[in-house]
Design a protein around this nucleic acid. Structure first.
Lengths: 239, 239
DNA sequence: CCACCAGAAGTGGTCCGACCACTGCGCACT
DNA sequence: AGTGCGCAGTGGTCGGACCACTTCTGGTGG
């Protein structure tokens, strides 16, 4: 009769129940209690353990799934992802897709910086096999007139370079920054100006720098490539 | 009696219901039907519109909330965010916090690249007021011995520079890459080696380059700064 | 003995209905 | 007119039920 009104410390009084659940699960992983690839308790059990309803558990799991931390397999269970990049890319891509105006330019600026660096790293580390793959996409891109196919090979071209840079995280970020719809939106108008030729020239320059194992040349070529799109976009929305 | 078994086109048969709901809402925003700051229909109404239950709507909203696209205000309604960067930082920070081993190094490498660029941009654009703020954090950092306070001013120091670079998106990414717990974890051991002096020297060098409006010097100083932490971390987990 | 398949158990996915906590606004009271 | 209270509306939480899918198990036939 003396501690009911004054304070009830046990049931943590912060934020919403779901928010707390997210923190709890996140903490479990952070503390190593949950290893990547490991299976979590069932939603029902988690609800009991955390003292919350299954609905709230589901929302927490959904949130962590979106973040790329957890993965739910229907009929099997919930698992901790390998956190192997490419998992956080989805969120990043969504933001990129929804960005407009000045934000788009900023995104492109970030991409230019990372793409340049990736190209420089790739020039130093790329394997003959990877170089051949890059060349393949370059050739395929030049051999067709179908915009969709060109776009696909363009994406693959850059993806291959990012992979060759040896930094999966950077590759994942670039992947998000070059998400399909994002790219499609920008290219729609860009290519109408007959920018194909310039694009081909720039891609060829990047490929040449990679083949020559010249990091600085690759950095410059990649930077110029993205910079061109940047310039076009700036002119577009500007005056 | 003749179209029940053959085909049911209206209820698109792809993915889970929640996933579809996410796409639908995302599309509404992408197509401009939902302006930033605008209020969405209630969860109950959305359920009716999309032909799904409120539970599923809630999960979809939760997912988009985590992505920083929506914001739910208890008792008021669901709103579209301004997509003003800093919203996607949370997810990015979580990933950074949970990363381990090689992934951590990759993250740091990305940070080095962006931090260098931000410093270079800041050197060209920084205002006297911002420069003073940077100097203030530098002085405050050198004036105390409390690790927590040092960390706080360290974060503010870099945040101020990122802001001065004039690219909010880049600043948001750097913010996520320097999230509190991430930083704390790395610094715990780093500072034990009496790295304070070196950190102070490096920070001073960055500040000097900014004051001199020398982009290349700022780029080099910032790159070296992050690179030092990188080197230490590599030595740590290596042999 | 092995390969294969049908069933059962367990899991996430979806739906429903109820109630709680908070916000916002309008009405009545002062 | 100013103030406070109450009510309607909204997101937050809960519990239970059922569905869809995966997985393992046991049996059956080769």
């Amino acid at each position: 009769m003396n501690e009911s009104p004054p304070a009830g410390p046990p049931p943590a009084p912060k934020g919403t129940v779901t928010q707390r659940a997210i923190e709890r699960i996140k903490a479990m992983i952070g503390e190593g209690l949950l290893e990547p690839g490991q299976r979590l308790p069932t939603e029902r059990d988690l609800g009991v353990q955390l003292g919350i309803s299954r609905s709230s558990v589901r929302e927490a799991v959904r949130a962590l799934t979106v973040m790329g931390v957890l993965e739910a397999r229907h009929g099997s269970g919930i698992y901790v992802t390998q956190l192997q990049a490419g998992d956080l890319l989805e969120t990043f891509g969504v933001v990129a897709d929804l960005s407009r105006g000045p934000r788009l330019l900023e995104l492109l600026e970030v991409r230019r910086v990372l793409e340049s660096t990736a190209a420089a790293l790739a020039a130093a580390r790329i394997t003959p096999g990877q170089l051949e793959a890059v060349g393949g996409h370059l050739a395929a891109m030049n051999a067709t007139d179908d915009p969709d196919e060109i776009l696909a090979h363009d994406l693959a071209f850059h993806r291959e370079i990012a992979a060759a840079a040896g930094n999966e995280t950077m590759a994942a970020i670039l992947e998000g920054l070059s998400s399909r719809t994002f790219r499609t939106r920008v290219w729609r108008g860009y290519q109408e100006e007959g920018a194909y030729a310039r694009t081909r020239r720039e891609h060829a320059a990047i490929h040449r720098a990679l083949a020559a194992r010249d990091p600085e040349a690759a950095r410059a070529a990649a930077g110029a490539h993205v910079g061109e799109v940047e310039r076009w976009l700036r002119d577009q929305g500007g005056p």
